[in-house]
């Protein structure tokens, strides 16, 4: 598959996301925030970082970048979109996913190898995992506290849209230990931890993150 990775000004993890997609066997297309062109890709990754310096709110300005017009239209039409960390923040600002992401409850930036439990394997990005599988990937964020009103949380839980949950520790105060969620259709997933940093044994916490990228193969198959 052809996987597009969007680079915004201030994006940090685009090269790692490109590498992860390549390791998973995909052809990678570098996409630029200022273009109105997805170049016909089959899936889009919004990577981590500090786009626009997190000015205003994390993701708030990137959400209006030119390419987001096409990303939002594509996502609404079923294009697989994965937002990691800052990418997750952009997806909630774009209202492609509900809720919001606030500063960590303990107010410190956190960087650790984090255990997650995969709770929904029917999304475009989690089909390669087993239901309930526990994986370890790096987590690094300052504004990773997922919040939503009680009604939204109940809907997410009831519809099985919590994709991944923190295990052992809740590193940022996220409601119900939520680490990642999906839209109703399951093509759009937002994830605070970083699977793209755990795709090769040499440099990662392991290779547990690879499943997010290999899952795509099952989508178009």
């Amino acid at each position: 598959m052809r996987v597009g990775v969007v680079t915004f000004p201030g994006t940090l993890d685009d090269v790692d996301a490109q590498r992860a997609a390549r390791v998973a066997g995909h052809e990678v297309v570098a996409l630029w925030h200022g273009d109105h062109d997805l170049q016909g890709v089959d899936a889009v990754i919004l990577p981590g970082g500090f786009s626009y310096g997190d000015y205003l709110r994390a993701g708030a300005i990137s959400r209006f970048a030119p390419i987001m017009t096409e990303v939002i239209a594509g996502a609404q039409a079923g294009l697989p979109v994965l937002g990691i960390c800052n990418g997750f923040q952009i997806l909630v600002e774009a209202h492609l996913l509900p809720g919001g992401l606030l500063r960590n409850d303990h107010r410190k930036f956190i960087c650790r190898d984090q255990t997650l439990r995969i709770e929904n394997t029917s999304t475009a990005w989690t089909g390669a995992f087993a239901q309930g599988q526990e994986i370890v990937v790096p987590l690094k964020n300052g504004e990773g506290q997922y919040v939503a009103d009680a009604e939204t949380v109940a809907r997410l839980e009831g519809d099985g849209r919590v994709v991944a949950r923190y295990v052992d520790v809740n590193p940022n105060g996220s409601v119900n230990d939520i680490a990642g969620i999906s839209n109703e259709r399951g093509n759009v997933v937002g994830l605070m931890p970083h699977p793209e940093h755990a795709v090769e044994a040499l440099t990662g916490a392991g290779t547990d993150g690879l499943g997010f990228f290999t899952s795509l193969a099952g989508v178009l198959a």
Partner: peptide, 14 residues
């Protein structure tokens, strides 16, 4: 302003 029901970590630090 953060909504009343939303935790405000910056305000807590102050």
């Amino acid at each position: 302003m953060p909504k009343p029901e939303i935790l405000d970590p910056q305000g807590k630090a102050v």
